[in-house]
């Protein structure tokens, strides 16, 4: 008789954050995205220490190709490209976080509210969301920035205000299915107010798809800001990656570094956020990690 003891699953359940991290790790993309984002954050926070030169200083010679003293060369005014990119990280990250954050908050509130209450409120919200989703958002942003001016504050606000319907739709679907659950009925039976039910049960349980989508939207917001800057509608007082490309256009045929490096960073940021979105999907939906199709317990 064979005596063989086999341990099949050995996993420790820890605090929620540990569990979250455990699931998140399952996605290689998520992990890569997270590492890149971490680097970006470090760069943004320590920009003055990391950047070798003042991003606005026009000291060096113009359009120097990359070298030891200017690792990414200099631009047409003799400013250090690397230092400008480092400072640009601040702008891009804050645009990403604030614009997408705003969009998430608006989307979560409106979506959960309309999904949970249903009825006429829901119908109206649904129409508004549909309308918003039909209008090409970038076009709308262009118009608004053209009218109200192009400070970074407006740009963030406008991006947030035009992208929330996606989140609202996700949140609404969650609220619609959650409100049929028994524990919501329990909450109603014990007399919890609707607002309380919304904030303590519906939103905490249904917010995950929105969060994953928000990560994607952060990348989107960065891209939108870059595009606006590229069209010359960026904030004139700030260094941003998009603006660097915009300003480098006339020279790009013979000074590739002025365009390529900012371009790489834009792509990196967008990719890192979309990878994070992937990781979050794993973290919030552990069933994905065990790739099985059947209805499991």
């Amino acid at each position: 008789m064979e005596v063989q003891t086999e341990v099949i699953v050995t996993r420790r359940k820890g605090k929620n954050i540990i569990k979250f991290w455990h699931n998140y790790r399952q996605s290689l993309y998520g992990l890569i995205g997270f590492v890149i984002l971490l680097l970006f954050i470090v760069v943004a926070v320590f920009a003055p220490i990391i950047s070798p030169y003042d991003p606005h200083a026009m000291k060096g010679e113009v359009l120097l190709s990359p070298s030891i003293s200017h690792p990414m060369g200099t631009d047409h005014l003799g400013r250090d490209v690397f230092s400008r990119i480092v400072y640009g990280t601040r702008v891009s990250l804050s645009v990403g976080f604030i614009a997408a954050g705003l969009s998430a908050i608006i989307g979560i509130f409106i979506g959960s509210f309309s999904g949970y209450y249903g009825g006429i409120v829901d119908e109206i919200v649904d129409k508004i969301v549909d309308t918003f989703l039909m209008i090409p958002a970038f076009f709308l942003i262009l118009i608004i920035v053209a009218i109200f001016g192009n400070s970074i504050f407006y740009i963030m606000l406008v991006i947030g205000l035009t992208t929330w319907p996606q989140n609202a739709r996700l949140m609404r679907a969650q609220a619609l299915s959650l409100r049929e659950r028994t524990f919501i009925m329990v909450a109603r039976a014990t007399g919890e107010s609707s607002i309380r039910i919304l904030f303590t049960h519906i939103i905490p349980n249904g917010v995950y798809p929105v969060l994953a989508n928000t990560a994607l939207q952060m990348g989107g917001a960065i891209l939108t800001e870059a595009a606006l800057s590229f069209l010359g509608l960026g904030d004139p007082n700030l260094v941003s990656w998009g603006k660097m490309i915009y300003q480098a256009r006339p020279y790009m045929t013979f000074a590739w570094w002025t365009v390529v490096f900012p371009g790489i960073f834009i792509v990196l940021a967008v990719v890192s956020f979309s990878f994070i979105g992937d990781g979050l999907q794993y973290a919030f939906n552990p069933k994905l990690s065990v790739k099985q199709k059947e209805v499991s317990a």
Partner: peptide
């Protein structure tokens, strides 16, 4: 069924 949740540990002869 080998459908235990992740925090379970199964061993058997």
């Amino acid at each position: 069924m080998r459908l235990l949740p992740p925090n379970a540990l199964l061993s058997a002869e």
